[in-house]
Design a protein around this nucleic acid. Structure first.
Lengths: 128, 128
DNA sequence: CAAATTTGCTACAGTATATGTAGCAATGCA
DNA sequence: TGCATTGCTACATATACTGTAGCAAATTTG
């Protein structure tokens, strides 16, 4: 596809009103890194995208279908944000996690297991 | 305050169109626990609230100011969701994490450190 | 190599969700 | 009893997400 891979102005970070550590963000006046991260991850589908990409590179459309109901608009926005934050890149096999993204994923991974026991504790038995 | 602590219909889970494992959720047709969790945590301020509460119980208004710019509307909504999911309760010292909430936090905690190195990698040196 | 398919993505209207300010009723305290 | 604080609701405005349509570049197919 025409993934011309926009110059990707690495510097000066995030054009989308997002993470810019040290400065107030949506979700944090302080601009603490953790709050910046939470702001980023707290956007719809951000976590799901990372989770999905952890199994390897995927094309836009594959990712879209794996994520279920994401609209291309949002998927594209999220991917841009994640790219600008150095968590995802657009390689020739499609979108994939960067080294940093992989690392982030390793911290997210335990949630997979936890969520299962949690869901059992919190849901009535009717659903498995 | 008048925290009459609404009967809190534990059963049947989540009135707010949220986590109900096994059923499609916003953010997941599959209803996989992890996606349900991501749906929950992917809402504005959810992660920040958990993070803030990790230091101990807080009143509504303290929490609100610690979170910076949350509107009472959203804070209240998020707290209700988190309560319905068994992650937060409204004790007599204010809102606090449940045992499950604490456990969840331990999985989130490493992100605090990671986010710092990440933000350095991703931001130009001008800040900090 | 031309036609058909797939892919990445934008447009846009409709809906849902969040922000920000105001304010009120129930405590807590003096 | 009065005043401050707390938990929260109301409501208007702003922002974000969904869903469908569709197009142009790249890739595959005949």
């Amino acid at each position: 596809m025409h993934h011309y891979n926009k110059p990707d102005k690495k510097v000066s970070l995030i054009s989308v009103k997002l993470p810019e550590t040290g400065k107030p963000v949506r979700g944090s006046k302080s601009g603490q890194p953790i709050m910046v991260l939470f702001d980023l991850l707290g956007r719809r589908w951000a976590l799901g995208i990372i989770w999905n990409l952890s199994t390897g590179p995927q094309t836009f459309r594959t990712l879209q279908s794996n994520c279920g109901s994401v609209s291309p608009t949002v998927l594209n926005t999220r991917l841009r944000e994640l790219r600008e934050c150095g968590i995802v890149i657009n390689g020739k096999c499609g979108y994939e996690l960067t080294a940093e993204g992989e690392e982030l994923f390793t911290y997210l991974q335990p949630l997979g297991h936890w969520s299962q026991t949690w869901s059992h504790a919190v849901t009535p038995q009717e659903d498995q």
